[in-house]
Write a protein that binds this DNA or RNA. Sequence first.
DNA 1: ATTCAACGCTTTTTT
DNA 2: AGCGTTGAAT
Length: 712
Amino acid sequence: MSDLLGSLNPPQREAVVHGDGPLLVLAGAGSGKTRVLTHRIAHLITDRGVPPWAILAITFTNKAAGEMRSRIIDLVGPAARDLWASTFHSACVRILRREAEAIGLDPRFVIYDADDQLRLMRACMKDEEIDPKRVSPRAVLAQISDAKNRMLDPDGLARVSDGFGDELVVRLYRRYTERLRAANAVDFDDLLVLTVELLEHDASVRERYQQRFRHVLVDEYQDTNQAQYRLVQLLAAPQNNVMAVGDDDQGIYSWRGADVRNILEFERDYPNAAVVALEQNYRSTGTILRAANAVVALNRGRREKTLWTDRGDGERIVVEACRDEHEEARRVVSEIDRALGEGTSLDEIAVFYRTNAQSRSIEDQLVRSRIAYQVIGGPRFYERAEIRDLTAYLRVAANPADLMAFTRMTGAPKRGLGPGCIAKLAAFALEHGMPIGDTPAHAEMVGGLTAAQRGALADTASVIADLAQAAQGALPLGRLVEMAIERSGLKASLMVEGTLEAQGRLDNLDELVNVAAEYDASADEPSLEGFLEEIALQSDADVVEDAAGQATLMTVHNAKGLEFDVVIMTGMEDGVFPHVRSDTPEALEEERRLCYVGMTRARRRLMLTHCETRMLHGGREYRLPSRFLGEIPRDAIARPAGAPSRSARARSQEGRSSAPALAAGDSVVHATFGEGVVTGVEGRGQLVRVRFSNDGTERRLMAGAAPMRKVG
DNA sequence: ATTCAACGCTTTTTT
DNA sequence: AGCGTTGAAT
């Protein structure tokens, strides 16, 4: 037996050396689950003689997959390169490209991202003459995605739905599927659904993969949806050497179809499953853990567990009340300065927020203070307009049937080819069974076009032909992208514009040349299709760099799986976090788990900020401190810097401890909401419910922190 | 038929 | 604030 086990604690070791059969690892935050996963795979390879290519390891992001692979190569040597370590989506693409024909799919299919999907849905709604103002295309897409996550096709959805509006969704779902296939495209959900269908319906393909993958390991199992669950089940059968690692307290993707029941009911699905719980935390201080545990413990329907650490209590959590988002940003900067002064490096500092829009005020202040930072998420590189314009050319070159890409391409730069002209070409394409991308070359056969349009189309045809030809040949991808930038006319039109912004766009296009060249150098079998696919499957989390000397800003969702010495969670306000739209008990519990995820990212120091007022949705809104703040044990929280003096604080503490300041029935006056009546007291007297007479609303307030006093 | 400018509306989280 | 739609000008 190798020395893989030396550095592991007993439950970790148990998970690593577990024999055949299903295994569930309940891994609390910071309990070393990545270590367990990598060491188990290394153990399978070196001690049990399992060939690396017979192991499938599924992670949540491409970056995590890459890291896992390189760690395992470090542990067992280069033979481990044959390991399949990837996300669900990449694994499915890989399988589908090989086996597409078995389900009547062209193996050169392209992947439509959120933007393509939205455009396509708008087009479908036009087909069906549905007013996009009455029915939101996004909402329809969300329902379709929901259906796909539940493995329902249009007929299936029709069968299970009862509501009146569902008929509309079914109709659009049909149309959407038709148009996707016509464009030889699939969406994100299709990758999973089609792979499941493939494996379910084709026994020989299924058996081939089942025999190949002798071990299937899945990380973040609590965030799997039904299709992913089925996929794991199909691939792992019949031996069921499946290891699921996860933490029900960290399930934060139910809105994307994830079903926490998958982890809660693992033992029912795999009756002979071994279960190992990892509860020792190696990341955070005792105080941070105690606070995070206290918050998440209020959830029902979770597996009871308590993380512990032997690292000692550490510092208390800092809660800062701010007037508005500008003051909040200044507090963030002073906390960063303070941490830097203590010797913490910038890349060990992270700022979290609930929604991407909140980053703006913080970024402003960081720029002003000359603090280097990177923002994860938000507008992504590959989603920038100019990048999408350019990739549209590449996409049409790779797949002339891609109508969305063709439409985008012909409109950028503007050259007199508008919707009317595209519609004529599309009709012609349909009539002659020709891919839309081939129509410009036959424009002379299309009627009703102006001379200017024919000229523009001739030009377009030659661009498409040249790019397609270059893509077929041995031209390096970097050169191909350069060629597209020139020939598309995007470069010329941006140069003419001449603004600083246009220059920035040109720089982005140049950056894409670099990305392409890099891909060319690193990929096993570089191809235009492969490059476009990599772009499509890229996630925000994949671009998190440990680049020295930068603080990191991101949403709490993006923070999953990461850790930092110092974490600042901003916008801890009711309506922001928890989010307003999380108004059901289940949704609130998910927000609470999200809060737990955020808090447990911190190793040493955790600061939480909230504002009295902030700009939201184009107006200034007043917000109460997040209820989650009230759920943190009081003695885990430090007296905020810049808060009332020691003596003032002492007085208020006395007032609070000697007698509960407020009880149901008391009249109060609040600085913002005016007069009201206390209707109830919660959370050991820390929270009071008050009905305000001004607007008749009932609000939950922090008894100590809210600008409110008793009257009469 | 295309394009540009003004207006009015909505806003989570994302592989 | 940003987007998509609408209306007017070309």
